[in-house]
Design a binder for these strands. Structure first.
Lengths: 195, 195
DNA sequence: GTCTATAATTTGATAGAC
DNA sequence: GTCTATCAAATTATAGAC
């Protein structure tokens, strides 16, 4: 699964052959088919791998006390991974973009679900910050990330990531803090998913 | 070329076969090879077609007197084409994303050039507005477009385009006007939600 | 479970009649 | 210039020995 995720990210789903993944995992092709009946199942496994990495990241960020700090750290993580973004784009975004051009197999919806995972988590942070329209703000932040990744990749320019990352950090810093003065402190929104 | 541009946009470059394009153009496959020696040349033609459409659009917008108005119309054009973005994403952006995963043929740089065409034109408008760092603002605006297109596509939600488009229009409207005789423009603020 | 060999299909590209 | 027929290579998937 790790080999599938990496090779598919670098070459794209369509260009990647089973032999490519088998070689990366250092196993014969026949062995791959023992665990994954079709190529689509391998792509689905790559998506699941990316979803897993995302959960590891948000799980780590959740240990920070301040939602604003979590979002800032998220942006900093994106910027710190700029070299891979410049070369291959966002793993989930580029894969979603490719899979969305299919109309068979339903792999496109699978990709959408992984993206929604991130959008929902970000929206949760904005909600905890007491912001109106947290979903809209989440779409803005995640959209900015997808956009700067695509541009950095297409223009082969890592400074796109650093410059736009700075801008996003400034924006997050300018958001009003509900904990600052009056108003209900914590417990503003339920800790679980509200969807 | 028009058939190539449309089919490649809908199916992606890798998934599109010469037969697909030939069928869309209503000619036999052998005929296609008379004009385009390889499949890569067909993809390059599709890119050129998108670049041509972009030049038609900016040429039209250039006839407007106010640079700010040009940018607003650009955003409105993007939003008006939301249905195609929801289904297939931005033609140039998705193609660039796909081609950037290749390391042969140099088609990736070709895609980057088309994106740069748009970024440079937008930067020119910001420069005419007297904005500092017009290139950075252009990357922000074009990045926002690429990001909202990708999210609208992945989430199959046209309201992403309308909502984020509204936000961009508000941001453009808040920019200081250099033609107004009074005070120096204030520092730029990132495209956050108006408060 | 692992691996080699191979079947079955698709597809980029060409030959050659018209 | 247009079109049909076809080749050669690549690739998904399977069969079957170990």
């Amino acid at each position: 699964m790790a080999a599938a995720a990496q090779v598919v990210h670098r070459q794209g789903a369509e260009r990647t052959t089973i032999a490519d993944i088998a070689r990366a995992a250092d196993v014969p092709v026949g062995n791959v088919y023992y665990y994954f009946k079709t190529k689509d199942e391998l792509v689905k496994a790559a998506l699941a791998e990316h979803a897993h990495q995302l959960e590891l990241l948000t799980g780590e960020l959740d240990r920070l006390g301040d939602p604003r700090e979590r979002l800032k750290r998220l942006v900093e993580t994106w910027v710190s991974q700029r070299d891979v973004a410049v070369r291959y784009g966002c793993p989930t975004g580029t894969l979603a973009s490719e899979l969305d051009k299919r109309d068979e197999g339903g792999l496109d919806e699978e990709a959408g679900r992984v993206i929604r995972l991130l959008v929902d988590w970000v929206a949760g942070q904005f909600a905890q910050l007491g912001q109106p329209d947290p979903e809209g703000l989440a779409l803005t932040l995640v959209g900015a990330y997808q956009g700067m990744s695509l541009l950095a990749n297409a223009l082969r320019d890592p400074t796109v990531m650093t410059r736009q990352g700075e801008r996003l950090l400034g924006w997050l810093g300018s958001l009003p803090d509900p904990l600052a003065t009056d108003g209900p402190p914590a417990g503003d929104s339920p800790p679980g998913e509200g969807r």
